[in-house]
């Protein structure tokens, strides 16, 4: 039976990866939100067919292919073209690009649920189309998109574990490398699982609060 000092050693080892997990999750979240919102605006408020088609194709391709495959294409595939990304860069770019496809859909659902009268009224009182989008539609759409976005954030934290497959030194990566040097596999993976749970529980609680709050607003 492993004693407490073994457990402490394992925990310390795993915590070395915590910063990379957090950095990858945060950076991917920012890319996902900004790019996703941009794509959503282009998709909803332009009338150019090619733009619509390109964005739709982007969203479908990124949402129907596993993150692991995208990461392998970015990390191993691009290297064969001479474009070598570091594993952390590949992880951030990969998860960020996938996130953009996810949040684009969430934002679009937010804009779609607004009544047409909002645009008409804003234009009628003399706001320019740009002002209408920025100050009238976006704040309302954000409010509707918020629960979906926070759900995505929870999912993202868990998905960072996948980037250990391209050797990005996050929690799961250290778990895997510790297993090869010690034989406490059960304890190591259970501790890693617990660590992720500690990261996602507060986020999940946040999702619930947001859902309750905005659910009530709707009703």
């Amino acid at each position: 039976m492993p004693d407490f000092s073994t457990f402490r050693l394992i925990l310390e080892g795993l915590l070395t990866g915590l910063s990379v997990t957090v950095i990858v999750a945060l950076a991917a979240l920012v890319i996902g939100l900004v790019l996703g919102f941009g794509l959503c605006l282009l998709r909803e408020f332009t009338r150019i067919r090619t733009v619509h088609f390109t964005i739709d194709a982007y969203v479908e391709l990124l949402r129907n292919i596993p993150a692991l495959t995208h990461l392998f294409i970015l990390y191993f595939g691009l290297a064969s073209l001479g474009l070598r990304l570091s594993s952390i860069t590949a992880a951030i770019v990969g998860l960020g690009l996938i996130g953009a496809a996810v949040t684009c859909d969430i934002f679009r659902a937010g804009f779609r649920s607004l009544p047409k009268g909002q645009i008409e009224a804003a234009l009628a009182v003399g706001l320019r189309p740009g002002q209408t989008i920025v100050s009238i539609l976006t704040p309302q759409a954000m409010r509707i998109a918020l629960p979906g976005l926070s759900n995505y954030a929870v999912q993202l934290v868990k998905d960072t574990s996948v980037v250990s497959a391209i050797a990005a030194p996050e929690i799961m990566f250290f778990a895997r490398s510790m297993v090869t040097s010690s034989f406490q596999t059960t304890l190591i993976y259970a501790t890693a699982a617990g660590l992720y749970l500690l990261l996602s529980l507060p986020l999940m609680q946040g999702v619930r609060v947001l859902e309750n709050h905005y659910g009530k607003l709707k009703a």
Partner: peptide, 23 residues
Amino acid sequence: VTTLRGVPLLAILFLLYFGLPGV
């Protein structure tokens, strides 16, 4: 439900495949 939604699938898979043989 709370636990399994908060832990990444990869951790569960590793626990089942590499971890459980330990016990």
